[in-house]
Amino acid sequence: MTTLKAGDSFPGDVTFSYIPYTEESGDITACGIPVSYNASKEWADKKVVLFSVPGAFTPTCSVSHLPGYIQNRTQLKEKGVDIVAVIAFNDPFVMSAWGKANKITDDSILFLSDPDAKFSKSIGWADAASGRTGRYALVIDHGKVTYADIETERGSLKKSGADAVLASL
């Protein structure tokens, strides 16, 4: 269990679970089919912002954290970001519904599941008490971590919010 830090390579074995948005399953009550999303492969030649939340549909995550990224999608793209992704310990069905509830019907933000907080635990950023993913943000630029920080204050977005990540780019 090693915490990722700026200058590190992004691990080569990171896979999340994901339900790609389709018009056929666009209704919030419709279920798509989960697929594996090999982040290590998909992100190897891209600039990526990955932010993690303790849970979909939870207060800080839904009211402040995710909305900051939704509102700043254009500014992130202008800074050269190819992919914005959010992870939580929730299953892919909940993550898909969270994207639909927030009217994300394209790939401007990927809603990925970190089952059992496997990735977050591997970097030491899962909550020990709950087993959930921590609240953190990473910037990965062509396989190299250029920004990595975790919130230590409950409900804070000083390190993992869109404004902090934009300032780091």
Rank of each mutant, 00 (worst) to 15 (best):
I83Q: 08
G99E: 09
W125H: 11
V81G: 10
S120M: 05
G124V: 09
K100E: 00
H142M: 10
N102M: 12
F119L: 03
T146E: 09
F111Q: 00
T133D: 00
W125T: 03
I104E: 07
S122R: 04
N90T: 08
G131T: 11
I123C: 03
S120K: 06
Y136E: 09
D114K: 10
G124D: 11
S96H: 06
L138F: 13
I123V: 15
A129I: 15
M95I: 08
K103V: 15
D91R: 03
L138P: 03
H142C: 12
I83G: 13
T105E: 13
L112E: 05
V86F: 07
I109T: 00
A129R: 13
S96I: 05
L110E: 03
T105M: 08
V139Q: 08
Y147L: 12
D107A: 13
A137Q: 14
I109N: 00
W98E: 02
F89H: 04
I83C: 13
K103C: 13
K103T: 06
S130L: 04
W98R: 00
D107Y: 09
A128E: 12
D141E: 04
D116A: 15
D91H: 00
F89Y: 14
I109L: 07
A117T: 00
P115V: 15
H142D: 10
K100G: 09
K144Q: 14
F111R: 03
D106F: 14
G124W: 02
A101M: 11
G99T: 13
N90D: 15
V81L: 08
I104W: 07
D82W: 04
S113R: 03
I109V: 14
T146A: 14
I87Y: 07
D107L: 04
I140T: 14
S96M: 12
